[in-house]
C-alpha cells in the first residue's frame, strides 16, 4: 500500500491543478460557489474514471514492462517533474510527465512500445489543435442556435450559467476518464492493481486533490478565462471537455490545459481577437517540449539513486 503513495500524490496534484480548467471560470466569476463546483468535479471525476478510465490505463501500462519498484519510481519522477515545472512557472502536463517517466524506465529496461509512444505523441500534437478546431465549430454552430433563440437578458444569463455547470461537470467527467491512467496505470502494469481498483484509487485521489487544494489554483488560473465573455467561456469549457473525451475513446491521456489553450485560441480566431499572449504561448511550447524530457531524466536519476549500494571500505 505504501508504494501507492507516489501515485496518490500525483492524483492529488492533478486534481488540485486541473479542476481549474473545468470550473475555474465559473468559480472565479462567482457564478458558482467553490464547494458546489468542487463537489460536482470530484463526483464526475470519479464517475469518469470508473466508467471510461480503462482505455487510457491499458495504453499506458502497455508502454513498457514494469516491476513494482519501477512503477513507484515512474510515479515519483512524474510527481517531481510536475512540482519542478510548476516551481519554474512553466505550464505542465501530468500526462506528458508520466509518459516521460515511463520512457526513462523503458530506456533502462531496453523495452519500449514504439507504436504506442507514436500514438501518444501524435495525440499530444492533436490536443491543442483539437481544442482549437472544436471551439471554432462550437462557437459557430452553438452561436447561430443561441442567436435564434432570441432570449431576454435574464434567460440568456440562466442558459449560460446552466451551460457552464453542465459543461464543467462534463469536463470533470472527461478529466477523470482521461487522466486517471496517469495516476495508477503504472501499478496495473506492475501487476499490483486491477483496472477497476486503479480507476477507483486514481479517481478518489484526483477528487481528493480537487476538494482540498484546487480553490487557490482555480482563483489564479481561472481568472485568465474570466476575461472572455460568458458565451466564449462556455464554448471553451465545452470544447476542452469534448477534446479530452475524444482522446479518452482513443485511449490516450492528454493535457486538459493544452486543450483549454487551444479552445481559447479558437474562440479568439472566430472573434478576430488575440486571446492568448505570445509569451503564454511560448511558455506552453517550452513546457510541452521540456516536460517529457525532464521526467525521463528524473526517472533515470531516481532509478540510479535507488540502485546505489554502499560498499564499506571503498
Amino acid at each position: 500500500m505504501f508504494s501507492l503513495l507516489g501515485g496518490i500524490f500525483l492524483g492529488w496534484s492533478l486534481g488540485a491543478n486541473d479542476a481549474s480548467n473545468v470550473f475555474g471560470s465559473a468559480v472565479t466569476s462567482r457564478m458558482l460557489k467553490f464547494w458546489t463546483a468542487a463537489v460536482l468535479s470530484a463526483i464526475f471525476v470519479l464517475l469518469g474514471a470508473l466508467i471510461e478510465g480503462q482505455a487510457g490505463i491499458e495504453t499506458l501500462k502497455g508502454l513498457t514492462q514494469l516491476t513494482l519498484q519501477q512503477a513507484v519510481v515512474s510515479s515519483v519522477a512524474a510527481a517531481v517533474t510536475v512540482t519542478v515545472m510548476t516551481v519554474l512557472g512553466l505550464p505542465v502536463s501530468t500526462s506528458q510527465a508520466v509518459v516521460g517517466a515511463l520512457i526513462g524506465i523503458g530506456i533502462l529496461n531496453q523495452h519500449f512500445n514504439i507504436s504506442g509512444l507514436g500514438k501518444i505523441v501524435a495525440c499530444w500534437f492533436g490536443t491543442p489543435v483539437g481544442g482549437l478546431l472544436i471551439a471554432v465549430v462550437l462557437y459557430k454552430v452553438v452561436g447561430a442556435f443561441y442567436n435564434r433563440l432570441n432570449l431576454t437578458m435574464i434567460q440568456s444569463d440562466i442558459l449560460i450559467r446552466c451551460g457552464l455547470i453542465v459543461g464543467g461537470s462534463y469536463g470533470a467527467y472527461a478529466l477523470g476518464a482521461n487522466n486517471v491512467a496517469n495516476v495508477t496505470a503504472v501499478y496495473v502494469g506492475a501487476g499490483m492493481l486491477s483496472i477497476f481498483m486503479a480507476a477507483l484509487i486514481g479517481g478518489l485521489s484526483i477528487g481528493f486533490g480537487i476538494l482540498t487544494y484546487s480553490r487557490k489554483v482555480m482563483e489564479t488560473v481561472g481568472s485568465k478565462l474570466v476575461r472572455l465573455d460568458p458565451f466564449s467561456a462556455l464554448v471553451v469549457v465545452l470544447a476542452e471537455a469534448i477534446t479530452v473525451h475524444i482522446y479518452t475513446f482513443v485511449g490516450v491521456p492528454v493535457s486538459t490545459s493544452q486543450a483549454v489553450v487551444g479552445a481559447v485560441l479558437g474562440v479568439g480566431m472566430v472573434k478576430g481577437i488575440k486571446t492568448v499572449s505570445t509569451r503564454t504561448l511560448a511558455n506552453i511550447g517550452i513546457g510541452w517540449f521540456l516536460t517529457p524530457l525532464v521526467a525521463t531524466g528524473i526517472a533515470l536519476a531516481i532509478d540510479f539513486a535507488v540502485h546505489l549500494h554502499y560498499i564499506p571500505g571503498v
Partner: peptide
C-alpha cells in the same frame, strides 16, 4: 451571486 458578472455590471 445571482447573474453572471457581466450581466450584473450591465
Amino acid at each position: 451571486k445571482a447573474l453572471l458578472p457581466e450581466s450584473r455590471e450591465d
